[in-house]
Design a protein around this nucleic acid. Structure first.
Length: 136
DNA sequence: GCCAACGTTGGC
DNA sequence: GCCAACGTTGGC
C-alpha cells in the first residue's frame, strides 16, 4: 500500500465539503508530476488531505476509491482523475509549521516541493503525521 | 532545443 | 498583497 498527500484550498474545496459528499472525484489536476502521482494511486491507498493557502495543515485522511480514469472536467486525454472517499478527520490537524519543525518530516515533498499538489508520502512520514495528530 | 517572457501556486 | 519558485509557452 502506498501513501499520498493532496492539497486543496479550503476556499475552493474544503475537507468539510469533501466529507459532506462522502466521496468525490479528485479532478482538475493540470500538472504532469501531480498527474503521474494520480496515475500511480492504487485502490485502498491512503491519502492525507491538506489545506493550502488557508489553514496550512493536514486535516484528514481519505482513501482511493477508484484508480485513475479520464478527467471528466476536460476532453484533453492527457489528464486523469481518481475517486477519493473520506476516511477520518484527524483528531488534531497537523500544521505546516509543525511539519517543518519535525525532523522525521523534513524531507516531505510538501516542504521541499511546495507547489506540487499531489505527492507521495512514505510510510514512516505517514505514521508520523498520524502520530502527531493524536498528540496533545 | 534554448531561453525569455509570462502565468500560477502557495507561504509569508 | 508580495514575491520566490516553478511550470509552460512560443519565438528563434
Amino acid at each position: 500500500m502506498n501513501y499520498w498527500l493532496v492539497k486543496s484550498e479550503p476556499d475552493a474545496y474544503s475537507w468539510d465539503k469533501f466529507v459532506s459528499k462522502g466521496e468525490d472525484n479528485w479532478d482538475g489536476v493540470r500538472n504532469y508530476q501531480a498527474r503521474n502521482n494520480l496515475k500511480a494511486m492504487k485502490l485502498g491507498d491512503l491519502v492525507l488531505f491538506y489545506h493550502s493557502n488557508q489553514g496550512l495543515e493536514v486535516v484528514g485522511v481519505a482513501q482511493v476509491a477508484k484508480e485513475a480514469f479520464q478527467d471528466p472536467s476536460t476532453d484533453d486525454e492527457r489528464w486523469v482523475a481518481v475517486r477519493l472517499k473520506a476516511v477520518e478527520k484527524l483528531k488534531n490537524s497537523v500544521s505546516l509549521k509543525l511539519i517543518k519543525k519535525d525532523t522525521v518530516l523534513s524531507n516531505l515533498a510538501l516542504v521541499k516541493h511546495s507547489r506540487l499538489s499531489v505527492m507521495p508520502v512514505n510510510p514512516v512520514e505517514f505514521d508520523r503525521i498520524i502520530f502527531l495528530s493524536n498528540e496533545k
